[in-house]
């Protein structure tokens, strides 16, 4: 697999109006994202993860260094729209990214912008709505939908443009648990079955645990970058930068800390339950053995 997004030593700072010193968000940052990967970016508020995400589709351009998307430099203003077609972006608040007053019109918005033929738009819109599972609402007004449905409309609007990568900036932060599940299911399906590269920025560790790779950012630096199991085994380090680990991992970590033999590289609830069962069985077996031994004596 080749590198789809490649950041080479990029720096970015915000200029403040009344402050002569610009605020540095990150400096000399390197990051590579492979085609077809599903990457989670974690970090507490202000760690620069959203700013980084906005670099991926040339909404922001690096002050220094170079960011290549599919070989195109994001600082090349002639390539802006090509880059944005390749890298779609979904934001946190579904209300603020839906433009049209009818679901299908909104999904068509991006395609209309890039000048696709009407018949082709129709086909791609229907296809996109089908993929995210909201075809039955295509003639509805967006404000009548639930949060999860609205966010899926936003995703449909992006995938209708057939991007190769989708960057999602906390897409589930404003949703209820059911909405979060719907959206995560859609994202996973897009990655696993349609080969779309996913960059998921999130605060939910359980969502990050479902990705192939987790990048942890802290004050503009990449702190950890590995598979979820490895990253979440650094419980102490994550806590020190204001992050959590998935609940299942936390339980195992605490039991381990209390002195029981328990693996800490556990991510899902099921794994955790299995390990707990094993631990309980082991402990009982040991107790029974001890009891038998004492009876014999």
């Amino acid at each position: 697999m080749s590198d789809f997004i490649e950041a080479r030593g990029i720096s970015f700072s915000y200029a403040m109006e009344d402050d002569p010193n610009p605020i540095r968000v990150f400096e000399e940052l390197d990051l590579k994202i492979k085609e077809g990967e599903m990457v989670a970016i974690l970090g507490h508020n202000g760690s620069g993860k959203s700013t980084l995400a906005k670099h991926f589709n040339a909404i922001l351009q690096p002050d220094e260094g170079q960011l290549l998307v599919n070989g195109m430099d994001t600082r090349d203003n002639n390539k802006l729209y090509e880059i944005r077609q390749d890298v779609g972006m979904v934001f946190q608040n579904p209300d603020n990214q839906i433009v049209a007053t009818v679901v299908e019109e909104d999904v068509a918005f991006g395609l209309e912008n890039i000048g696709v033929e009407p018949a082709e738009i129709r086909r791609r819109v229907d296809d996109a709505l089908e993929r995210v599972g909201i075809s039955e609402y295509k003639a509805h007004a967006p404000h009548r939908l639930s949060g999860g449905q609205k966010q899926r409309v936003a995703i449909a609007g992006i995938i209708a443009m057939r991007p190769r990568c989708i960057v999602l900036d906390e897409p589930t932060a404003m949703l209820d648990p059911a909405g979060r599940r719907e959206v995560m299911k859609t994202i996973l399906d897009l990655n696993r079955n349609h080969g779309i590269t996913i960059v998921l920025i999130t605060h939910y560790m359980d969502e990050a645990a479902q990705c192939d790779r987790v990048v942890v950012m802290d004050s503009g630096n990449v702190l950890l970058d590995s598979n979820p199991k490895d990253v979440f085994s650094h419980v102490k380090m994550l806590k020190s930068v204001g992050l959590d680990v998935p609940q299942a991992t936390e339980i195992c970590y605490e039991i381990n800390k209390a002195g029981y033999p328990m693996p800490t590289e556990v991510l899902s609830i099921k794994e955790c339950a299995d390990e707990l069962q094993k631990l309980i069985e082991r402990t009982y077996a040991a107790k029974r053995k001890a009891a038998k031994l004492s009876q014999k004596k």
């Binding site: 909404i59 991006g110 912008n113 009407p118």
Partner: peptide, 26 residues
């Protein structure tokens, strides 16, 4: 704030005014 976010979302979806735009519904 909403306007700001909407503008960014529209930019992400390649919005650049009416030139060269097509419409789904004719």
């Amino acid at each position: 704030r909403r306007a700001d976010e909407l503008a960014m979302a529209m930019e992400c979806r390649c919005y650049r005014g009416g030139d060269g735009r097509t419409r789904m519904k004719q």
